[in-house]
Design a protein around this nucleic acid. Sequence first.
DNA 1: CTGAAAGCGCTTACAG
DNA 2: CTGAAAGCGCTTACAG
Lengths: 333, 333
Amino acid sequence: MQKVTIKDVAKLAKVSPSTVSRVLSGSPSISDDTCKRVKNAVKELHYTPNTTARSLRCEKSKSIGVVFPDISGEFYATCASAILKYARMSDYTVLFTESGHNLKAEKDSIKALLERRIDGIIFIGDNSDIPLIQSIAAQSIPIVTGDRKVGNIPSVTFNNRETVQEMVDSLYKSGCRKFMYVGETPTGQSNLLNRYNGYTDALKKYSDTTSVIFLEESLHGDKLKTARRLFTKKIITSLPDVIITSNDLIAQGIISAAHENGINIPNDMQITGFDDLISSAYFIPSVTTVSQNIDELAKRCFSMLMDLINKKSAVSSIIEQNIISRSSAKINI
Amino acid sequence: MQKVTIKDVAKLAKVSPSTVSRVLSGSPSISDDTCKRVKNAVKELHYTPNTTARSLRCEKSKSIGVVFPDISGEFYATCASAILKYARMSDYTVLFTESGHNLKAEKDSIKALLERRIDGIIFIGDNSDIPLIQSIAAQSIPIVTGDRKVGNIPSVTFNNRETVQEMVDSLYKSGCRKFMYVGETPTGQSNLLNRYNGYTDALKKYSDTTSVIFLEESLHGDKLKTARRLFTKKIITSLPDVIITSNDLIAQGIISAAHENGINIPNDMQITGFDDLISSAYFIPSVTTVSQNIDELAKRCFSMLMDLINKKSAVSSIIEQNIISRSSAKINI
DNA sequence: CTGAAAGCGCTTACAG
DNA sequence: CTGAAAGCGCTTACAG
């Protein structure tokens, strides 16, 4: 590794380490001459500052931690990329950790972040260990949640509940009466819970409808495969007019299984997804879905966290979703 | 943040800080009694070790850096998740950075990693700033490359060239004569270059074939959109028997545009992709593609890097790809 | 088995 | 405008 320290630079530039440090941090009270000498020495020795030492001394690390359930999904991966972008602009580094669907892993990953002395945490994890998260906030370690609501921790969320209501209303108006909902069991993820609640909210208004609900634990795993199985095992025998799903992959799995069974979408049955995955626009038929501005989510989470880190107050906010009406279901908005 | 230090623990347990440190690191020469006292004090005070201080003192950070072009693509996101998994097992944290398709961003992200004093780097970046990477290795900072070959830096790669040859051979045998290749301009990414080279290698053997090649800079960006445009602007007027593409998204874009123009795949034209994206199996028609064992890539990269960090020698390796024959092109293997 | 001391590489009051 | 000194929180020879 690097062996060049600020002392070596100081020696070559014939100044004290303090002065080198001042030049490096852009302190104003430095004569032009010494400034130049130091900068030349830095270049000559290929000096790379040691942020570990800086962090220890300054008691802040200029790094943040981000907890995802699993960084490989398109939604989280896109979010990770956007967070990296905003962090880069502010010269922060990002430590990503995965909590899986596992309370212990979530605890462990938060512990790891705390040991690294990150300056703050963006929590977009799965189980939402509420006591743990609240105890972190109570220790006045900056923490915000994204796409989830945990107690009164500052958060950025989407208006899932209203969006699903709107979809159901529109589908009802266009003639749908047999409804179905397919989604993951919502354990601790307020976004999933709100999608489901929006569905039941809306249907309460209509007395001439039927509703079948599948909340499947296994949909947390391989959504495409599980959805396909669900369709051929349980749905095909009595098709609804429309299926509202909590995720594009679930919708795609059902569409693919329906196609194999000679069922035409949207003619025989309609279906909607969530998340507007890239593939959904190009799927055949293209998938009617809900797009969420992930860049905006990342931006607000990051800037809210910066506010907290800089001792300013952070204000939670809600981002409006957009219904994207495509071939798999006609929704008028 | 945490204010509890090893000194506080020492005071409570009535021992010296040295002893606390020894207990924490599991040193054997500690009496049961003091060990217990220290552990109780740790619990009582909710002591969280400060790895920043540890890193500074020990001159290693137990963290590694990973450079991706963009973590949001399915391939890289899956790889990131797998690297996190292996890092977790060895109690390492991971700093991901993005280089974009931009030499300066690549330099900056590597610089940021070096300043953080990561113990080593897994480079899966884009432009492959060869001098920079080699200078890092020359400073004996552990670095390995994944899915790319950079000089004689230890690497884990796939056998792209042979795989594409095999595909072309099989397609030739099944009667294809009009071939086309669609891919990104291969700038510094040896994987892309090798896919292209495998294609030209194979076609050299057959005198009764035609070949049209599109190497597009813009395919580095939105592959689906670019591929669609390419199809309607340049390909549709003279369909080949088969298109070999360097990426499933390119294949999906073309399939979708073809479908809109009433062209039947595979009957009117066949097409292959690369990477075996999740959606490719469920696309209609399903996409014939090449699957790469990303978990194995991550595993080998990580363990090779650990070898380097532990002063052992690292040996490069090549992982075999698998051709997945689906509906969009029939390949016999 | 345990403690006192030195030091990892920085930054920042303090003094001049 | 600049330097000497102290200290961030650890670990680890050294000594006993």
